[in-house]
Design a protein around this nucleic acid. Structure first.
Lengths: 218, 218
DNA sequence: ATGGAACCTTGACCTGGATCAAGACGATGC
DNA sequence: GCATCGTCTTGATCCAGGTCAAGGTTCCAT
């Protein structure tokens, strides 16, 4: 987004603060606006009938979320909660729709953003239905490493990553349980792929990890 | 879309024909345009390393698909194949981007369309990770029934639906195997929920089905 | 530093559903 | 009508990973 667009948005937005664990919206709520993370970290997730959780996204500063109902009408398809103390900008629907209608470049940005999100879901569905847990975990570690590489240059992938969330949240994100995450980390370590030190993961064998993320058998 | 927009699109589009089983595009292909189903039926899907398939969408006449690369740059995140002889309109990227930039209403339509698709993926992820196969199957049957209800009025849900795809494709769509689909249909019939006659499904107990789609235990 | 609350790990057990293999059914052409 | 091919069903077996239960760590706040 250009600086111009951002400053216009500033005048439209209301700033909200949430403590760790506070709900931002609930699945089924009528959405009359959407959100931008200013500081902190939030998750968007679904709960099953029995209370099991599947995380759909985890977003930090700069990310927008909750815009599906803005464009589609209807209600939020999932719920959202602050993972740590966070400040969130809320953009009311009507003013934003006016703005985006008047600003083709903003509309194109929004289309690109939703498209990226569709791609991300595509990958998540592939992971959940076509890969086993070891492959999903390997893929997650590699994604983390790639994201934190300077210039996103895969050649500069760091040898150490730090988990940005608890292992329990990580389990929910990749569609499994904390117990299983723990066991697979152990197996990966035994196989010489990584070393786990609390929240830090040393990547011993990037190629091996990469193969595991495709082939999936440990 | 208004008639005006459609006729403009007509002049931009190229018409393509595909036989049953023909590929429309492959995951990773550079997308320099997107598609509208004119007649026939197509699937969008991912393949695993070992060749297992997960269907992401099945689309009939009127649906657009393959627009993610148009807005995001990059390549198709999944592959697409004709399920029956189909005619497909292809819209080249550049002309369409010009048109959408000049036509705010069209941009809003596109945003609404992508938002609907995000919602659909949200449901699919929920199904894959939070529900067991019986619940997914029940949900699929109910979705079929609701879609074919007059005016989409749930009160008018028909007592019979006809599967629009083979049971093998259905299995791929809900993330399981033909064997399992067969067994669960049998159990549902034994429980008095439905009767299966080849491609026709008589819905005996809509409420029971609905409960199964939430609670998931048969 | 110390007590407590999250969070994480490990073990034992169990089950949903995948896989493999073989037959039944149904549609299509000859 | 009969052979053939694709689609579906049924049975037997197996295993990834979920669940339950019991310690072990880490991180705070006091």
């Amino acid at each position: 987004m250009s600086g111009d667009q951002l400053s216009t948005i500033d005048t439209l937005a209301r700033e909200l603060t949430f403590g760790r664990g506070e709900m931002i919206f609930q699945e089924g709520d009528r959405g009359n606006g959407f959100y931008i993370v200013a500081t902190g970290k939030i998750k968007v997730f679904k709960l099953s009938f029995e209370g099991k959780e599947q995380i759909l996204h985890i977003y930090g500063p700069g990310h927008t979320f909750g815009e599906v109902p803005v464009f589609e009408g209807k209600s939020f398809p999932a719920s959202s909660m602050a993972l740590e103390p966070s400040t969130i900008l809320f953009l009311p629907r009507d003013a934003f729709v006016d703005l985006i209608t008047a600003t083709p470049a903003l509309a194109m940005n929004m289309l690109a953003d939703l498209s990226r999100r569709l791609r991300a879901f595509t990958v998540q569905i592939e992971n959940l239905s076509l890969k086993e847990v070891p492959a999903r975990l390997a893929a997650y570690i590699l994604t983390l490493a790639r994201e934190s590489a300077p210039d996103n240059d895969p050649e500069q992938m760091p040898g150490k990553v730090t988990l940005p969330i608890s292992k329990a949240q990580l389990a929910n994100l990749i569609g499994t349980t904390p117990e299983t995450v723990s066991r697979i980390f152990k197996k990966m370590a035994d196989a010489g792929l990584i070393t786990v030190q609390t929240k830090d993961i040393l990547i011993q064998d990037p190629d091996g990890l990469s193969e595991l993320s495709d082939v999936g058998r440990l």
